[in-house]
Amino acid sequence: MSRPEKSKVNLLRPKEGHMRDEVHIILAILFGWGVCTFGFQFLVYACRGTGTGSLLTRLTLFNLPLHFWFTGQFLPLWFIFLCIIFNIYADRISEYHSRRRDRSYE
């Protein structure tokens, strides 16, 4: 009955061990996800009518204006890339922690 009132499962205060490592990679991936998705739109919006803005909309890649290419083609690719990175790290930390827990693994 002597449980401390503090929550033990909390995304913002992960407990030590596997959960903390997992949360770190989750937050890093979410950062990459948020900045590229919404940050880029803010950039396009904020730069409208300026030199940078016309650079974003005039420069072309595969004949597509840069901003259209970034949103329509690069971002889905970026999401796939993020998922791959997440999986590689998640595999790695679960291997590390299962080895720590169970020495017979080695």
């Binding site: 996800w33 889905p76 998922c83």
Partner: peptide, 24 residues
């Protein structure tokens, strides 16, 4: 036009959220 791309991004980027926060 460009506004419609929000659907492309929304329907692919959601899988990132799903994978990192909920799947396992």
């Amino acid at each position: 036009g460009y506004q419609g791309l929000a659907y492309v991004i929304g329907w692919t980027g959601g899988y990132v959220l799903l994978l990192v926060l909920l799947a396992s």
